[in-house]
Amino acid sequence: METERSWADLPHETLVEILKRVGFEELYMAVPLVCKAWRTASLDRACWQRVNMESCFCNRTESSAWWQPVFEGKVDYMLKLSVNRSAGSLLELSTRHCSSSALIYLVSRCPSVRHVSVASSRGVTDLAICQLAKSCPQLEHLDVSECANVGLKSLEQIGLSCKYLRVLKKNRFIGDYDPARKSRLPPEYSRTPSPSHADAEVSVIATYMSNLKHLELRHSKISNQGLLTLVEGCTDLEYLDLVGCLNLTRGTIEEAAAKLPNLKELRRSTAPVRTSDVARYGHWQLYDERFQSGFFQF
């Protein structure tokens, strides 16, 4: 009779290849508890080259707890743990609600990182993003959507230092479209940047990031002139998201699109944002069930 073989009997290299395809939560919490062989494989640096924590912030009941420093500290802990387990080989990071100190910890130890997404991180500032730009010149993808403390200084430094950048996501927080929601948010997220500020940002993008292929500016206050300035500088754009940019006219959007010969997809809207749209977009939400589940308790 053939004897049944356990997954634990698989060669270490094979287990590692399997676990590289496992989600962050499972790799962080479940896999190490299966058996010694699985735990050993889960600690291999190859399993931590691509860290995606997005599932930790999805499909849960909304809560205001994520605004508290204690939660940010827990996210920081997991981010630093991932950096340590990667032994400096981390290439891609997607998370939310982290701090500048955690991001600086990442870039100081993983200079080859190419994909960084820290959306909805009010603790991330220009200081950390500038350090990212200087330390990680091979950066190709950056998402600083809804990062209220990331501004012109960061964009300019990224443009000067990261010549391989192809994807930039600088979507603005849209909580101000929902008064009931806004009352529960930190004060800095209720600020509404002026059109002149938005135009200054796109001017920096046009000047220093001419090689961009993918740009997202959801709910920006960008003006018609700002958009035309943008497309004059970023002629290689293939994807442009202008959803919720209510200062733009249809004619100017069409004129701008005509100046982008490689454009494959243009997302736009000129209608007011509905509450249902806010809920659908709501990836800044933190969730009661997740916070109480024990996943963030260590």
Rank of each mutant, 00 (worst) to 15 (best):
T3I: 14
L10I: 06
H12S: 08
H12W: 07
H12Q: 09
E13G: 06
T14R: 00
E17M: 12
G23D: 11
E26M: 08
L27V: 04
A37F: 05
L43H: 01
L43M: 08
D44S: 06
R45V: 00
W48N: 01
R50T: 10
M53Q: 12
E54C: 09
N59E: 13
N59L: 01
W66K: 07
W67A: 01
E72Y: 10
L79A: 03
K80R: 15
L81T: 12
G88D: 04
E92I: 08
S99F: 05
V107N: 03
P111W: 10
S112K: 15
S117H: 15
S117A: 14
V118E: 03
A119E: 10
T125A: 09
P137R: 15
V144M: 02
A148T: 13
K163R: 08
K169Q: 06
K169G: 04
D176Y: 10
D176A: 01
A180G: 01
R181C: 12
S183G: 15
L185V: 13
P187W: 05
E188S: 11
S190I: 04
P193L: 07
P195W: 04
V202G: 00
S203T: 13
A206H: 05
A206S: 15
T207H: 04
Y208N: 00
M209R: 03
L217P: 01
R218K: 12
H219E: 10
K221S: 14
G226V: 11
L227V: 08
G233C: 02
Y239A: 11
C245P: 05
L246A: 12
N247R: 09
L248E: 01
I253G: 05
A256Q: 05
A256V: 13
A257R: 05
L260C: 11
E265S: 11
R268C: 15
V273R: 14
S276F: 14
A279K: 09
Y281S: 07
H283E: 02
Y287P: 06
G294M: 11
